[in-house]
Nucleic acid binder design. Structure first.
Lengths: 211, 211
DNA sequence: AGTTAAGCGGACCGCTGGTCCGTATCGTAC
DNA sequence: GTACGATACGGACCAGCGGTCCGCTTAACT
């Protein structure tokens, strides 16, 4: 049983940090920065190896795996860091992302925020979803957005299947689809946002009130 | 330039087969059968290696790569074989899949056929989309369905973005999502079909006529 | 039966994610 | 400032993967 400590102390749940050594924290940041940069430079995340990241960060390979568990853990940690602001805005922020927003406005806002994030961090999102081994649906990151979206959808009358609808709407913003459209097909950013908004509106149906 | 012959003669485009040796054809079938079986047995397609397939088929590894180019080629060939009937039905078959069907009926029928196929061949679809290296959107198999769906959607009035809509609807039937819902979450088959149909109907909007 | 080339298979290669363990460094108690 | 235990470090190391090579086998045609 070689697992006395939690394997991925990426972000300690309790604010009481269990004492992190200074060099460890510094290395952690260096690794995240190096990984971000490398993923951004190379087109396909598959061409960036763990050894590359370690070298770019100026640390040994073992440091990567000690700090993040495995490749997926590193990518998840990086992704989580970048997405945190949006996540927080959706959880407790003001409209249009926050929970007080009426659903006909909030759902498109959430999806648009997600889409913009994936456009701005294409490489990262691609690396996250294209991890290969585990499906994106296993990550609790997905569960979070799904729950948020489903909850908002459930407040819309005459929408019989909020659970599936949330899945389907999220599927429309999947990283590889975004990459295909914005990258390969060259669809302009604003056009893509408009199309997603249009699609979303169609799914939600007409708002009850002026909204 | 070590490439005098086409690298992946999976299905010769011209019906004039360029003379295939008997044992080669036999081996090809054995490989496809073995691969299908192994993918079905193991849960995750990632755990099935090329060596496994070769051993199960009773051939050498080189035979796999000679016949199919690489891992992706093998999976694509297998997938194509299984999907061919549906594909043909969509291309030239009778309603509700064939091209003569009015779009308000055909689009749901196409998506439902795709969903049923992925439910019936979950392992295979998962292996195809989860190839890892290349995104599913690069495969011309995807381009085919997208074009078919977009064409049908374009015939619906007041649907401003048939291209994106086709992508988004197809995204709702992605193999890993289907696997997540039908497998992990245990959503019953008929319920999933009904949900997809409901969602599709919402996207298409009301039919102009009794349809 | 003889000839030829297509087909065969398994040893082999390069590379990857992931691990091990002796060593260097940090944090602390004095 | 120094001594000391705990913690983290790093690069050699490992197992397993997709993919290739080449000497041998065998189908096909005469």
């Amino acid at each position: 049983m070689p697992d006395p400590t939690p394997p991925t102390p990426s972000t300690p749940p309790t604010p009481s940090a269990p004492k992190a050594r200074a060099d460890a924290a510094r290395n952690r940041e260096a690794v995240l920065a190096a990984a971000d940069r490398l993923f951004a430079e190379h087109g396909s995340p598959g061409t960036v190896t763990m050894a590359d990241i370690a070298a770019a960060a100026g640390v040994g390979k073992a440091t990567l795996f000690r700090g993040f568990g495995d490749r997926t853990g590193l990518i998840r940690a990086l992704h989580e860091t970048r997405l945190a602001p949006i996540r927080q805005a959706a959880e407790e922020g003001p409209p249009p992302l926050g929970p007080t927003t009426p659903p006909h406005e909030r759902v498109p806002a959430l999806l648009d925020a997600l889409l913009r994030f994936k456009l701005d961090n294409r490489h990262l999102s691609l690396a996250l979803e294209g991890t290969g081994n585990g499906s994106p649906y296993a990550a609790d990151h997905y569960a979070h957005w799904h729950t948020t979206l489903r909850t908002a959808l459930a407040r819309i009358p005459d929408l019989p299947t909020p659970d599936f609808t949330a899945h389907a709407l999220l599927a429309a913003t999947r990283a590889d689809l975004v990459e295909h459209l914005a990258g390969t097909e060259g669809v302009p950013r604003e056009q893509l946002r408009a199309q997603l908004a249009e699609f979303t509106a169609r799914v939600l149906g007409p708002a009850v009130r002026g909204d």
